[in-house]
């Protein structure tokens, strides 16, 4: 099984994602330059964190024009699993692969710390190995992670169980106090209607070994392996 990690100019979590997929999970992984047009036969695509194209105009706004994004979109349309982490999530929103948008954190601050996140849905390729309502500790590091969608879109996302992760406390309780950035409904991650495209602000790839403060993020990538294996076995 092969992971492709897209490298935009300004990506900074690309090597963390590559390391997590190849060294920690032990699968094949490739770094794919944003000007490339094919995904090298990958089974899973990761859009990593960072500041693609300097976040010029808006976060993720320019990255959606990178040549590789046509291949990513085609891959997603075929049902291929795509994970957008932090800036990668912002790129998926700007590219229209996920609904909604990001605005500045409500308290202006760039938030960089380990946060608990509750898994809301386990029927996505990136949460298939999680327990229902499992709490994962993963770092966030962003200035614009305040998820916004208009009321109709938000209602639709909730109705179709597209909220995959919510900010919570360590006990899994969701409240304004456990929301680091003002995201509507404490949303930390969502999926598309088909459930194969997932975006989240926390960084699972930076929480894959105990030395990093948490190994909870490992299950996100392990989920992709599990879900592809079960597809292949079907």
């Amino acid at each position: 099984m092969k992971f492709a990690v897209v490298v935009f100019p300004g990506s900074n979590s690309d090597h963390d994602a590559f390391y997590a997929a190849s060294e920690v999970i032990g699968e094949d992984a490739a770094l794919v330059w944003h000007k490339d047009t094919d995904l090298q036969g990958a089974d899973v695509v990761i859009l990593p964190g960072g500041f693609a194209h300097g976040d010029y105009l808006r976060t993720g706004a320019i990255a959606r024009f990178s040549p590789i994004m046509s291949a990513v979109k085609a891959f997603a349309d075929r049902g291929g699993p795509v994970l957008g982490i932090c800036n990668g999530f912002q790129v998926l929103l700007e590219a229209g692969l996920l609904p909604g948008a990001m605005v500045r954190n409500d308290r202006i601050k760039f938030v960089s710390r380990l946060v608990p996140v509750r898994v809301e849905q386990t029927d996505t390729p990136f949460t298939a190995a999680c327990a229902s309502t499992q709490v994962l500790h993963m770092p966030v590091a962003h200035g614009e992670g305040n998820y916004y969608a208009d009321p109709d879109t938000l209602a639709e996302i909730e109705a179709h169980r597209q909220v995959v992760f919510r900010y919570s406390n360590a006990a899994g309780e969701v409240s304004p106090a456990s929301n680091p950035n003002g995201s509507l409904n404490s949303i930390a991650g969502i999926c598309n209607r088909q459930r194969n495209v997932v975006g989240l602000m926390p960084h699972p790839e930076r929480a894959t070994e105990a030395q990093l403060g948490s190994a909870d993020g490992r299950v996100i990538l392990a989920s992709a392996v599990k879900s592809l294996a079960s597809l292949a076995g079907r």
Binding site: V103, R104, N105, D106, R107, I108, Y148, G182
Partner: peptide
């Protein structure tokens, strides 16, 4: 400009 329904923390500061 941000839509009126969207909170503008920068403007607030």
């Amino acid at each position: 400009t941000l839509k009126p329904s969207v909170f503008d923390p920068q403007g607030r500061v």
